[in-house]
Structure formats: C-alpha cells, structure tokens
Design a protein around this nucleic acid. Sequence first.
DNA 1: CAAGAATGCGCAAGAACTTTCAGAACACGA
DNA 2: TCGTGTTCTGAAAGTTCTTGCGCATTCTTG
Lengths: 338, 338
Amino acid sequence: MARLIDIAREAGVSEATVSRVLNGRSGVNEVTRTTVLDAARRLGRVVEPVAVGHGPVVGVLVPDLDNQVFSAWVERLEAELFETGASTLVGVRARTVEREREILQRFLHAGAVAIIVVSGHHAQQQSPLDHYREVTSAGIPLVLVNGVQRGLDAAFLSTDDEHAVRLVLTHLHELGHRTVGLAVGDEHTWPVREKLRAFEAATAGGDGPQPVAFTDFSYAGGYEAARELLDRGATAIVCGSDVMAAGAYEGIRSRGLEVPRDVSVVGYDDVFWASLSHPPLTTVRQPVASIARAAVRTALGGGEDSRRPARTEVVVRPQLVVRGSTAAAPSAAASMER
Amino acid sequence: MARLIDIAREAGVSEATVSRVLNGRSGVNEVTRTTVLDAARRLGRVVEPVAVGHGPVVGVLVPDLDNQVFSAWVERLEAELFETGASTLVGVRARTVEREREILQRFLHAGAVAIIVVSGHHAQQQSPLDHYREVTSAGIPLVLVNGVQRGLDAAFLSTDDEHAVRLVLTHLHELGHRTVGLAVGDEHTWPVREKLRAFEAATAGGDGPQPVAFTDFSYAGGYEAARELLDRGATAIVCGSDVMAAGAYEGIRSRGLEVPRDVSVVGYDDVFWASLSHPPLTTVRQPVASIARAAVRTALGGGEDSRRPARTEVVVRPQLVVRGSTAAAPSAAASMER
DNA sequence: CAAGAATGCGCAAGAACTTTCAGAACACGA
DNA sequence: TCGTGTTCTGAAAGTTCTTGCGCATTCTTG
C-alpha cells in the first residue's frame, strides 16, 4: 500500500498534510484536500469515507433469490439487522461447497462481524464442515438456519418440519385421505429427512405404505413427482415447496384430474403468490419472521456478551394455512354424498 | 483506542507479540494468540477478521423484496458483482426519502465503494436530491436505475418504458382492441410518465381517449384499476406490474368477465409466476440482466479510470412476451366469427 | 493601509506500530 | 546425556504515521 510519504510527493504537499486529510482532521484547505485525495486514489490507496467510521456488517447467505421464500428470508433478516444498526451483505448461488466457501471468505474479506446461512450446505448430511470452521475460528459468530450439524461451534435455528408434516397429515386424514404422497428434493438433506420422519411415523400408524417421490424443489420436480405419486395411488400430494406445488398442479392436470376435486395439494413456504394460484394453495407458513429475529439476536448479541456464540439449537413451529387446494378425498366425498 | 503496549501489558506479553497477533502473522502459539485476543477485546480494541483484508463492497438499494422483480434485480446485480470480485450490501424499504438517506449513509458507513439504486426516490419527479449528492461528493460512484434526474453527477440506466408500451399497444391493436386501459401507480413517477407518453401518443393517434387509472403497483391497486377501466369501456388492460395484473384478473372476474375471452390483460416485469398464472400472463420482460451488467460496469469501472463517474444516461429496450392473457377483442372476435 | 486575527502548511519530535534477530524452551534422535 | 533442530517470544532497531508549534499567507476591520 502506498505510504503517506508517497502520496505527499504525488500531491506536492508534506506528509503531515496527507495524514490530516486521510484522518478527516480539520485545518486543511478544501482544494488541498481534494488534491491529496486524488493523489491517494491514483496510487491505489483506499480512501474510505472517513468521519463516518465503520459500522457493523453481517453476511447473509441464501441458495437463490428466484424462490420467493429466500427473498423473504433476506427481507426479514435485512429488516432485523437494520433495526440493530447493522448492514446486510448478501451472497447467493452457493451451489457447490467450494462456492459456498468462496462466498463465506468474501464475507470475512468484506469485514463481516457475523454470518447467517439459510439452507446452505449445512443442511446436507455428508457435507464437509471445514469452511464453516474457518469462519468460527476467525471468531465470527455463525448462525445456520434450517439444518443441524454436530461438531460445529455455531448456533442452529430451524423450522420444525416434522411438526409441519404432522399438521398437514392430520388435516388430510380429517378430509378422508388414506394414501398421501410426499414430493421432496434430495433425500440426504436435513429438512427432507425431518419431513420423512413424520411421514414414516404416519405410515407406521396403520394407513399402510405412503408413497414418497424424490425429485427436486423446482417446478419441473413438482410436475414429475405428482405424476409418479398419482400412479402410486395418492389422493393427496404434500410438496416440499410452493414452487413444487405449482408444478404438481400442472402434473395433476396433465392426467386429466382436477385440484382439489380429484387430488388435494399442500405446499410449503407460503410465498406471495400461493394465495393467488388457482385454486389458492393450502400451505405451511415458515416462521420466517421469528427465526430471522432470533438469528440476528444470536449473531450480534452472542458475540459480545459471552464471547462464546452459544452452540444453541432452536426449533420453531410453523403454521398450516388452509386454502382451496385441499378437499375431501374422492371416495370420502362419494360416501358423504350417499 | 487501546494501544498495543496496553494490550501487551494486559496479556502479559510483549508489544511485538500483540502486533503479530493483530496482524494475523504466523509464529505465535495458539494459546498466546487467544490470550492476546481476549485481552484486546477486554480493552475494547476492535478485533477485525484480519489476514483477510478488505475487499470492495457495493451497496444495492431496492424498494422491497416482496415484489419478485426486485429480488431478480438483487439476484442479477449480486451475480455481476460477485464476478468482478465485489461483495453486495443490500438495503430495502426506502419508503421515505429520509429512510433512503439513512440507508445510503449506512452504505457509506459500511465502506461501500459504489452504490446502485433501483427504482428509488430518484424516480420521483419532485424528489429532493441532496442525499444523492452526499454520496457523489464523497467520491462514491452512484448508479440510478429506472429513473432520471437532471443536475446529478450520477449514471442513469433505465428500461425503455415508452417503447415497452408501444410494443404492447401494437400487439393489442393487431388483436382488434380499440379501447385500451392503462393501470399504473403514482403519476409523478418516472416510469409511469414514460408509459403515459407512449399511451397518449396512441390516444392522439386516432383511437380517441384511452382511459388511465392511477392506483398503485400492488394487487389491490390492480383490482381497483381493472374495475374502473372496465367501467370506462376498456377491452384490454395494460398493467404497470405483474402483481397488478394478478389483481386485475380478480377485478375482471369480479365483474363476471373472463380473461382473455372478454378482456385481455398485459403485465409488466415477467416475474417467475407470470407463466404459471391462469391464463399465463402476456407481459413485458425487463432487461434486468443487461442493465445489471451495465450498472456494475459503470459503478466499478467508471470510478477508477476516469475518476469522473461519467454522467451517462442509457436506455435499454425490453421485450414483449406473448402468452395466454391476450386475445382478439370481443367485437373483433364476433366479426371474425361472422 | 496597517494591525491583528484566522487560516493553512511544513518541520521535526515523538508516538504507534512492525520487523529483525537472537536467545530460551522444548522435542527428538543418536 | 548431549547435540540438533524447531518453535516461540522479547529486546531493540526500524518504519510509518500523528501532532505540537511556529511561520507564512490571506482575510478582516478600524
């Protein structure tokens, strides 16, 4: 980095004047100040907006922003961080672990004082954890949302997916559905395993084997999964995301069936357009606001007080939002008509 | 701030060791390092994640993240910034100018080297500009997207809304629509005025007065506007956003009419769910990717080379995506049937 | 127009921080 | 047990940055 003496020579002033300018001290003529600033920039010296200092910055990492749940996460986290006086760095598209590592490094590099990761590779079962350790060992509090990993000095906050699926299954059973299909993404992923657990408990509960389709959380994934689950006799389909549910609608229609008359569909997330779809989607609302608040508090509060970011593990229960995509099972409806 | 010598005494080591620890130099025992770090924190010395330095950070300000266009903007801008090695700060909810100013200050405070504002208060006609000048006079390049203001030393990049509306009107005229309604938000806003201009040119073109409804860019706004425009004889409704179009669908249905048989609807933005709505929405696709690329290049490139962030003004043409919500006008369809 | 005040800048002292170098402490193999 | 090598640390010298002070220049006022 250019030294004061270099800048001084470049600007044709003394070292002292450069020092005063760079530290925002008074007693320097505006013209001289500009000359010095220009020289400093020419020599590649980082001229930070002085007199304003250095506010806290927190990194937020999400998988993408196309899925509206994740923009909702960013929106809530930014709101909470803003309240506490911090600024929000975002990172997107951490598709590979390598990429995720690069983004985390970028956060550290940008001076983040805490990092919050939503649905990152920590949700993956066999994921390496070294890149998270690089963060924690730098003394930066790490908060991981929707996923749990042993042996990591971080805080974990998750939606209670098992409970969510229980809520959904209870709702569908009350409507007379006996064969309920589950459409989810990668099996080795924390939220999927949680959902699966509740699902298998229900299977064991006496309704016989309940079909499960593993595709991915996209529209196309929902389409495929729905068609497969229909073939396996499902009269209701529980999707791992609202986008999947939209795809499921289309898959069901492609078989000449109608939602909810012939098949019920349940989404997950409760994104903006869920209530605008036809029929309006019954879905599970993630407790984004409360988790976001807790995440920010953990990220910023824990770091100062106890120095130890308290390896906490909190699970928050979501809420079932019943709209128009679930109805009585066809057979049940028939028996009711009788 | 505590000096090295103070920390050294507190930790019971030499000044040299403290210097090494604080600069992340190697050759210090892990135990000693921790002792020093603890002592430094006790004395209130900011222990930044050193050894990583200070990468460039760019601020991105959007009005909200509920509307998916804005998450798309953030997504693209983040992608472009990441490519060039910069990190992305986001600011949301700049509802008032005061708030916008606060967010911009926050960006400066966090060390942003450039700032990009999408659809901010610069789109407002009578908006004060002082808070933008605070940015530019700090030597920080400012890029303002979708809005133009005279007398500001910033770069302006916008979607060609006038052209967009021309495209839409041509499409609708070809389908036989003679009375086309425009549903937009605040009249004093740059994108609205641009759209209005093309609309009024069409009005003057011989089809007589074309109705315009000023509500807001929300779902409710679209609902209200659609009902008003139907009352005024419109057979096609051009909306200022896809969310408005979704509201318009509902408004049209509330009158017992059907899209597109009775009324055609055109949206604006081409958000993710536009193709999933029923019927799939004909809409205008904003050139988000190309503008985002140009914005980042202007923000980061212009600052170094010429020192002057080149008060540019670029307008990019959008694209009409024809789907299922536009069809021949009722009268024209009737005459075709004959 | 001159005296005094205010402002702006460089010199040089010295404060703050970094780095070199050598020695202490420890580990390990002969 | 004795070398030999490695790791870690502090003393001191070196580098970089800050600041008190005084001089020069410009502005202000009677």
